[in-house]
Design a protein around this nucleic acid. Structure first.
Length: 476
RNA sequence: CGGGGCGUAGCGCAGUCCGGUUAGCGCACCUGCCUUGGGAGCAGGGGGUCGGAGGUUCAAAUCCUCUCGCCCCGACCA
């Protein structure tokens, strides 16, 4: 606790790590590349689960659970899929002391095992759609890892749906993407761009991939969620056919979609400051902390009594921390809770008791307000709501200020070599130009945004005709 | 897998070049006193086979050989 958070402008990457470690969100584990999610971090994941799960259920989905281990032969059934995932898979070769006849992959994603089951479950159009979601862990053997953003094991949810028609699958793919967008904006308070991925960025085995893209404070992009239209690829690989009303056999249409604990990384990088984590109130399991302050035993009794009455009132609605630890002075406690991102701090000292007031400090603005004791619950609720919407607004302004329409490749390169940002530029649709941009600048096409305007222009690289702009950025 | 760096108390480090008392410092931890409106102070205390193995020597954290592990930067990725 003695160490301070490295400021963002000194070293952004150190800053991020400091926030995670000092905010007690996660810690390095004995297993290389894997992290321990500590209670503060897991609480955020629980909030993500709580809200998303409700959104999934409200849109007709149900939860299920499939095995962690996948037979090697399953992984190899879909050509693009195996090519995309094999290099980063961990494989079990021994079980019960015996070499296994067939090796088992630790799931990097569950399409294959789920579709092997769907084959058993789907006979008729009456069995469709299947709208299943799974909350699970997956393993991808990454070379370079970063807390929450990329670890060899991570938690996520993966939806896997089966449909009778292509149109219905496409509709589902877009519906889930929009649920992610809504969640990211309304709960995580991060403005989101939705759009389609280019061929090179799409999911291994998908027809096409849609994504939610967000901007972090270092102006880099972070993909917050993806939704894939898998077409009939997996149905064909696993021979899943159904009989339609006319008695004809058809392959089933599929989607899959997911978000991971990476969202916690996004949340941290979007809002936090040099004092530590800043949590949007809706994502805070414990949104309020009360810090009583006194001098001498007489004051202690009065202050604690007054503070307790405030605590009782707020406790009716919020999970409130009452920090009456005696071994720490107020300054320490302020710093401690700021590091952990508690959205609202209430300070109660002798002066407040005398005036029947209290001090309220919002984590995002850090402004101290003297508020009346009466109506404290309403005031706190009001401030939490304001903080939620102001965080989103602030992030939106930041993103817009760092999004540019660029038509000149030299300028394009210059910006990416400097501050960076989202660059909206014309693109011919060719993979060569996309690769050249990546080689020249490390930036990639984040998405072809849904809301792009029809506009004639020339590809930023080759100058060929283009009918609209795509979003380029360096990404996590 | 290429390039760089590091293993000494829970964490961060000094000591290693040039071998020599009982291996030291900061933070954290424990006890007591004192304190509480921005990361207090004082006093006392616990905790280390110096990453591992072998060797040289009267003597090794320090020199030699081998070995294991980790971190950072690149190629790959949610």
């Amino acid at each position: 606790m003695a160490e301070k958070v490295t400021p963002r402008d000194v070293d952004y990457s150190r800053w991020y790590t400091d926030i995670v470690l000092q905010g007690k969100l996660a810690d390095y584990s004995p297993v290389k590349g894997a992290m321990v999610i500590r209670p503060n971090g897991y609480a955020i994941w629980e909030m993500i689960q709580k809200y998303l799960d409700k959104m999934f259920k409200d849109s007709g989905h149900v939860n299920a659970y499939f095995p962690l281990l996948i037979p090697e032969s399953f992984m190899k059934k879909e050509a693009e899929h195996v090519e995309g995932f094999s290099p980063e898979c961990a494989i079990v070769t021994i079980g019960g002391g015996q070499e296994l006849e067939e090796r088992l992959y630790i799931r990097p994603t569950s399409e294959t095992i789920i579709w092997s089951m769907y084959k058993k479950w789907i006979m008729s159009y009456r069995d469709l759609p299947i709208l299943i979601n799974q909350w699970a862990n997956v393993v991808r053997w990454e070379m370079r890892t970063r807390l929450f953003l990329r670890t060899s094991e991570f938690l996520w949810q993966e939806g896997h749906t089966a449909h009778a028609t292509s149109e219905e699958a496409e509709e589902e793919t877009l519906k889930m993407l929009n649920i992610y967008k809504t969640f990211v904006e309304e709960y995580l308070a991060i403005p989101a761009i939705t759009g389609k991925k280019s061929e090179s960025e799409k999911f291994a085995g998908a027809l096409h991939t849609y994504a939610v893209e967000t901007m972090m404070q270092d102006r880099k992009a972070l993909q917050a969620g993806t939704s894939h239209n898998l077409g009939q690829n997996f149905a064909k690989a696993f021979d899943v056919q159904f009989q339609d009303k006319d008695g004809k056999l058809n392959y089933v249409w599929a989607t899959s979609w997911g978000v991971s604990t990476r969202l916690i990384g996004a949340l941290i990088m979007a809002h936090s400051d040099d004092r530590g984590l800043v949590l949007p109130p809706r994502m805070a399991q414990r949104p309020v902390v009360i810090v009583p302050i006194w001098r001498g035993d007489d004051q202690k009794v009065q202050v604690l009594e007054f503070a307790d009455s405030v605590y009782q009132e707020l406790k009716a609605k919020y999970n409130v921390i009452f920090d009456d630890r005696e071994q720490y002075k107020p300054g320490y406690k302020f710093a401690d809770w700021e590091l952990q991102g508690i959205p609202i701090r209430v300070e109660i000292g002798p002066k407040d008791v005398a005036n029947n007031k209290l001090v309220l400090v919002r984590r995002d603005t850090m402004e101290k307000q003297f508020i009346d004791r009466k109506g404290v619950l309403e005031t706190v609720t009001d401030e939490l709501n304001k903080m939620q919407s102001e965080l989103l607004e602030k992030a939106r302004i930041f993103r817009d200020e760092n999004t540019f329409d660029i038509d000149d490749y030299d300028e394009f390169k210059k910006i990416l070599a400097g501050k960076g940002g989202f660059l909206k530029s014309h693109w011919c649709g060719g993979a060569e130009c996309e690769t050249k941009v990546k080689d020249d600048t490390k930036a990639t096409i984040r998405c072809i945004p849904f809301d792009r305007k029809k506009e004639d222009g020339k590809c930023i690289v080759c100058g060929k005709k283009s009918s609209g702009r795509v979003v380029f950025a360096k990404a996590y």
